[in-house]
C-alpha cells in the first residue's frame, strides 16, 4: 500500500520535499516505514534508531502497525545540547 509521510526539519532539505510517498506492505509497522525511508535517503541513516515518528498526531513506537490513510510524520531526533 502507498502511504504519505510528512517530513520535518532537515528531512525536508534532504528529500527536497515536504511530503513523500512510500510503498509498504499490509501489516507493516512504523519501523518498516523508517527502514524504507532510510533506504531511499541514506543521509538519514545516522538518525535511524532515534527518529521521531508520529501516527495520527500521536508519537508512536517502531512496532506500531500502519494502515492505509494513517497520517505519518518523521522528524529528526529530539536534540540534547544546551
Amino acid at each position: 500500500m502507498k502511504i504519505t509521510v510528512r517530513l520535518f526539519g532537515r528531512y525536508k532539505d534532504i528529500t527536497n520535499k515536504d511530503t513523500i510517498q512510500l510503498n509498504i506492505g499490509e501489516g507493516n509497522t512504523l519501523g518498516d516505514v523508517i527502514d524504507c525511508f532510510v533506504k531511499q535517503y541514506p543521509a538519514t541513516e545516522k538518525d535511524k534508531s532515534r527518529m521521531m515518528m508520529s501516527k495520527n498526531k500521536l508519537y508512536a513506537s517502531f512496532d506500531t502497525t500502519i494502515i492505509e490513510g494513517d497520517e505519518i510524520t518523521l522528524s529528526p531526533p529530539v536534540v540534547s545540547g544546551g
Binding site: S49, R50, M51, M52, M53, Y59, A60, S61, F62, P77, V78, S80, G81, G82
Partner: peptide, 19 residues
C-alpha cells in the same frame, strides 16, 4: 504532551561535546 510522550527512543548523547 510531556517529554516522555514524544520520546520513544532517545538515548543519552554519545559524544562528550555537542557540536
Amino acid at each position: 504532551p510531556c517529554l516522555q510522550c514524544i520520546s520513544q527512543n532517545i538515548p543519552e548523547s554519545t559524544s562528550g561535546e555537542t557540536p
